[in-house]
């Protein structure tokens, strides 16, 4: 049976991820409640507001069940807010540690809003390791990674800062491939399954 890809659908651009995954031929299921978690083989965490998504995961009692699945080796891809939630530690734009709730799994420290506010948001052509053509990358109030542990592979950088990382079957990007027609990041994730 084909793998079912769950898309976390509590807040943010989840519809766009569902569409991109469907275009890649994947079976997609929205994950809104605890009871949706058992039926998925992999998870995509969309862009949105990481604080809002984290609060909702706690209110809906989904944080721990998802953490367990991640520890058991479920493949996960997170974009922007999704990247923040997948990193083991989070700091604010000034570099101070944030006690914000997270899923964790990637041994890295992420800095929120690291590129600045909305007026600093940008689009660029970005070479990503493992993907043949440069990706059209959309960065919106985007984070970057300031520290990576051993076992974390940096797949792309902007100005020397890591914006795409992979640790085993956990993949995360600072940018939003779900906002473009380019499905190469989604296809790369599906190839990890």
């Amino acid at each position: 049976m084909a793998a079912t890809i769950g898309v976390l659908a509590v807040q943010g651009a989840f519809r766009e991820h569902c569409r991109a995954l469907s275009r890649c031929g994947a079976a997609v299921k929205e994950v809104r409640q605890c009871s949706d978690i058992a039926g998925i083989d992999a998870l995509v965490i969309p862009g949105g507001e990481s604080t809002a998504i984290a609060k909702l995961l706690i209110m809906l009692h989904m944080l721990e069940p998802l953490q367990q699945r991640i520890q058991q080796g479920m493949p996960v891809y997170g974009s922007c807010a999704g990247l923040i939630l997948l990193c083991n530690s989070i700091e604010d734009a000034e570099g101070k540690p944030l006690p914000q709730a997270r899923l964790g799994g990637i041994d890295a420290t992420v800095r929120r809003n690291a590129f600045g506010r909305q007026v600093d948001s940008f689009e660029t052509e970005l070479p990503v390791q493992g993907i043949a053509q440069p990706v059209h990358a959309v960065f919106i109030r985007a984070p970057f990674i300031v520290r990576t542990g051993t076992g974390v592979q940096v797949l792309a950088t902007v100005g020397g800062n890591a914006v795409a990382v992979q640790q085993g079957r956990l993949l995360a990007t600072s940018f939003h491939p779900e906002l473009t027609e380019d499905t190469s990041i989604h296809r790369y994730f599906l190839s990890l399954l």
């Binding site: 659908a9 509590v10 807040q11 943010g12 949105g48 909305q118 959309v138 939003h176 906002l179």
Partner: peptide, 13 residues
């Protein structure tokens, strides 16, 4: 795209 994209991230909020 950057302008409409931020609004997309606010959805469901």
């Amino acid at each position: 795209l950057l302008k409409t994209g931020l609004a997309e991230m606010l959805k469901g909020g």
